[in-house]
């Protein structure tokens, strides 16, 4: 069984600056992996590489065994939840209209959504638990509800692989936790999940594996194995305090005292 996502020695440069340096990473079918790292670590770029929107300067990417920019209609098997910031919350659309957009990719050009698409959109909304909000304007939803709506939009395409970019930004902790639990239930349906986040401590209770990146892959493995003080300090490149509660260290304070490690390491 080949992995759903496979990156081999991927190098990416954007505008002459290195963004990803030699990343090798495999995500197996049905796995729930979180990608963590500081701002500017290339987390979003990594997702864009998997989506086929950024082509690596060096190295190889395979998604479902194919280069992602050659997936064509197969791209509909990838569900994507982008960062919420780029979206105008006052846009005149109902929740169900937004969810229906998840079907656009598999419809292709010009064709309009039909009854099967509407049914899929409804089901996706029910699955994320906000079926009752279908006809509300998207702008009236709370942060947590809106995130569920965007998740439903990705799920409406019935994806085999789900990519999420900081899905819990601006969502309160309780709502974030129930959002992660929801992702676990989606994973149980056999969907492979890759989620970019900065919510290290909490997320590690839900995911199978954590990939820590800071342009390079720092570590990749089971949360309790990889989330060590050393790995986190290396990734963030600054002194940080971690509380160990349970098995996984929880980052509490990040001192912004400059504490640069040698570039050669």
């Amino acid at each position: 069984m080949s992995p759903v996502v496979e990156l081999s020695d991927v190098w990416v440069e954007l505008g002459g600056h290195p963004v990803l340096e030699g990343i090798s990473l495999a995500v197996d079918e049905g796995e729930f992996v979180s990608v963590v790292g500081p701002n500017g670590a290339g987390k979003t770029t990594l997702l864009r590489v998997i989506l086929g929107l950024v082509r690596p300067a060096r190295g190889d990417v395979r998604v479902f065994g194919t280069r992602p920019w050659e997936l064509g209609r197969g791209r509909a098997r990838i569900g994507y939840v982008p960062q919420a910031e780029g979206i105008d919350p006052d846009f005149p659309l109902r929740v169900i209209d937004v969810v229906l957009m998840g079907r656009y990719g598999s419809l292709g050009w010009i064709r309009r959504p039909g009854t099967a698409d509407r049914r899929a959109a409804r089901e996706a909304l029910e699955l994320v638990g906000i079926g009752d909000l279908a006809t509300r304007p998207i702008g009236e939803l709370s942060g947590g509800q809106r995130q569920r709506a965007f998740l439903a939009r990705a799920l409406a395409a019935e994806p085999r692989l789900l990519l999420l970019d900081e899905p819990t930004t601006g969502v309160d902790p309780a709502a974030s936790e129930s959002f992660y639990e929801l992702l676990r239930r989606i994973q149980e349906r056999g969907v492979t999940i890759v989620m970019v986040t900065h919510d290290i401590g909490v997320v590690s209770r839900y995911v199978d594996k954590v990939a820590c990146i800071n342009r390079r892959l720092v570590v990749h493995g089971r949360p309790e194995e990889v989330l060590t003080d050393e790995a986190l300090a290396e990734m963030y490149g600054c002194a940080a305090l971690f509380f160990h509660h349970g098995r996984v260290p929880h980052m509490v304070v990040r001192r912004h005292r400059t504490f640069r490690r040698g570039e050669g390491r």
């Binding site: 780029g86 656009y104 050009w109």
Partner: peptide, 19 residues
């Protein structure tokens, strides 16, 4: 292109991700 123009106006990132 009703659906395409709606998508690009609302969420260009999603439009790209869908190909």
């Amino acid at each position: 292109f009703y659906k395409e123009f709606l998508l690009i106006t609302f969420d260009p990132g999603m439009a790209e991700a869908q190909g």
